[in-house]
């Protein structure tokens, strides 16, 4: 049985369809990510699953239960980290953990030694600190701890690493993988491509209330048809090539002829830094052709490198827009 199944979920706010008829299933024991930009409908979706919002239409089953009708029973079995939330200013970290552990009948693998939970989250020395004296990132990690303290079967994490520095972010990812390996299902939302790619077993790409693609990160990238990106900048050779008419200005379009090179799927210009990206199914052949072309036409290739395509490219291919803005 699926841990979560969603069918034709819709939710509107004042005539705007925040969630527009989405369907998906989450398998037990996987880390499932809802990836999309801000305003895509991710938080509305996750809060409908948690039973905190009432959907306009569709059918939701979470652990086989209806999140509205059976919410008290369900809340006993799930853990939740909300995107916008707080605790009392004058509650200590240890007290908050004991309180939340006390709200549930079930016990986590750490039993009554819930303070162990703070170690992997880097909060072990904060046990006696007041909530208001924690930094934004520490509060965020405490909320993750509170979502896990009772050892839930299923955890919902809404933008879990917002406000975390890269090191803390990696520590949280490693910890969540450990939690997953113990059998907990994890459902998360993120607008952070690297998080989805690195952490999630399966990802649903969401934009404007709809799910555009669903699969493992590797599958989604493979579906692009071009698994490598060849990236470079091209110094303009004459002012006519640039929109501002100056040699240091950015080019306005990729030069003609690149699309015709071998194994090229797509060519595009990254507008913010003027880099040209060629998606290729066979990078060595495309690269050789590119260099021949550059020599023949006297191009000055700068910062030339080859990358694996990412979920960022998947999002771009699906929506025509970049994920990070």
């Amino acid at each position: 049985m699926a841990a979560i199944s969603v069918k034709d979920l819709t939710k509107s706010y004042g005539g705007v369809r925040a969630v527009d008829g989405i369907c998906f299933e989450v398998r037990p024991g996987e880390i499932f990510g809802l990836l999309g930009p801000n305003g895509a409908g991710k938080t509305t979706t996750i809060e409908c699953l948690e039973g905190l919002r009432v959907p306009d239409g569709g059918a939701i089953r979470v652990l086989g239960r209806d999140p509205r009708r059976d919410r008290y029973e369900l809340h006993e079995r799930i853990g939740v980290q909300l995107q916008a939330t707080a605790l009392h200013d004058r509650i200590r970290v240890g007290e908050a953990l004991r309180l939340f552990a006390g709200l549930y009948r079930r016990r986590g693998p750490w039993g009554r030694r819930w303070a162990q939970l703070l170690e992997p989250l880097g909060l072990a020395d904060k046990l006696r600190q007041y909530y208001h004296s924690l930094s934004g990132g520490q509060k965020q990690r405490l909320h993750i701890a509170l979502a896990l303290v009772h050892g839930p079967e299923l955890v919902f994490l809404d933008e879990l690493t917002t406000g975390l520095d890269p090191q803390a972010r990696r520590a949280v990812w490693a910890f969540l993988e450990e939690i997953r390996d113990r059998g907990t299902t994890i459902f998360l939302t993120t607008h952070y491509m690297e998080e989805a790619e690195r952490l999630c077993d399966r990802v649903a790409v969401m934009d404007r209330g709809r799910i555009l693609a669903l699969g493992s990160p590797a599958e989604l990238i493979a579906r692009l048809g071009g698994e490598s990106r060849i990236v470079f900048r091209l110094l303009p050779t004459s002012p006519a090539d640039t929109d501002a008419g100056r040699l240091d200005a950015k080019p306005k379009a990729p030069p003609a002829g690149l699309e015709g090179m071998p194994h090229v799927r797509r060519v595009r210009l990254e507008e913010k830094d003027g880099r040209i990206v060629i998606y290729s199914t066979k990078s060595s052949a495309t690269l050789a052709a590119l260099i021949r072309e550059a020599e023949a036409r006297g191009w000055d290739l700068r910062d030339l490198h080859v990358q694996r395509a990412t979920l960022e490219d998947v999002f771009l291919a699906l929506t025509g827009r970049e994920l990070r803005e």
């Binding site: 039973g51 909300l82 707080a86």
Partner: peptide
């Protein structure tokens, strides 16, 4: 104050009634 700051919302996601 709890309601305004989202503390009650966090409690809503627990078995508390």
């Amino acid at each position: 104050v709890y309601r305004e700051r989202g503390i009650l919302r966090r409690f809503q996601a627990t078995p508390l009634r």
